[in-house]
């Protein structure tokens, strides 16, 4: 009655397949890196090189850019990809140099928390931005606010 039937293959069950996160991290660094080159070089050209460069940047400049969904999504993609790319790179460095296990946990925890907080903050700023805030100094607002 206690005869066991051993099914083929008669060997120990192989380790359960699980997602290889390090592999996907490796792929993400390369894929996001290529995209970030386009996004950041474009960002640097528009904000630092074109026109008056850094002198042109003020509230009205940002409001003018974010009036277009194109630049909102451009900056959103840059925010998310750069933060994850950067914090994952910092994670690699922490893993390499922080030998104390507690220190390593604290540093990687800080990286995770700061990444999540800044992605949430940045996303809210980009998509809840009001180019013509009530009470704002009219001289500092973009020119299209006067038409309202």
């Amino acid at each position: 009655m206690t005869t066991e039937t051993v099914e083929a293959p008669r060997s120990a069950r192989t380790a359960r397949r699980s997602t290889n996160w390090e592999k996907w991290g490796w792929i993400f660094m390369r894929a996001s890196g290529v995209v970030l080159i386009v996004l950041i070089f474009g960002h640097l050209f528009v904000n630092l090189v074109a026109g008056d460069g850094v002198h042109a940047i003020d509230f009205a400049f940002v409001a003018g850019k974010w009036a277009a969904p194109f630049w909102q999504w451009w900056d959103f993609a840059m925010l998310v990809l750069a933060l994850i790319h950067g914090s994952n790179g910092m994670r690699t460095i922490v893993n390499d140099y922080a030998n104390n296990p507690l220190l390593r946990r604290v540093l990687k925890g800080a990286l995770l928390v700061s990444t999540i907080v800044l992605i949430v903050l940045g996303t809210l700023v980009i998509f809840t931005f009001d180019p013509c805030p009530t009470g704002g100094d009219p001289a500092l607002l973009p020119s299209f606010c006067g038409a309202q």
């Binding site: 509230f59 940002v62 800044l118 700023v125 500092l140 607002l141």
Partner: peptide, 21 residues
Amino acid sequence: YFFLLVHILDTALVRLSPSAY
């Protein structure tokens, strides 16, 4: 990376007030 952290925070000031930004 460390510039990125600062740059997100300074850009977030547009949500606070035009004069602060």
